[in-house]
């Protein structure tokens, strides 16, 4: 099942060797520590890039889709995929 969220989130991210990866995000007053980034992809929004991350967190098996918008340097939680 996919839940469309599209809400702004606060993210602690790591910039390393030209790569950007979310490490922790805060959503609904809860802290989610990223266990694994399963996939990344990019697209454009006008002249700006958007970076997408599919991540698993340390608790539970849900998959979270995060988006970093270079237009305003903001993060969003776009979707949550529940197992099953």
């Amino acid at each position: 099942m996919v839940a469309e969220i599209a809400e702004p989130v606060d993210v602690v991210a790591i910039f390393n060797q030209g790569r950007l990866e979310p490490a922790v995000f805060l959503w609904n007053k809860r802290r989610y520590r990223v266990r694994r980034v399963t996939n990344t992809w990019r697209d454009t929004e006008g002249q700006y890039r958007r970076h997408f991350f599919a991540v698993l967190v340390e608790t539970g098996s849900d998959l979270y889709e995060l988006c970093f918008r270079t237009r305003d340097l903001s993060w969003q939680l776009l979707k949550v995929y529940s197992d099953g």
Binding site: T38, N39, A54, L56, S61, L63, Y81, D83, G84
Partner: peptide, 9 residues
């Protein structure tokens, strides 16, 4: 395959 990589479930 891309979807299966993205979501291990």
């Amino acid at each position: 395959a891309v979807e299966q990589v993205t979501n291990p479930a």
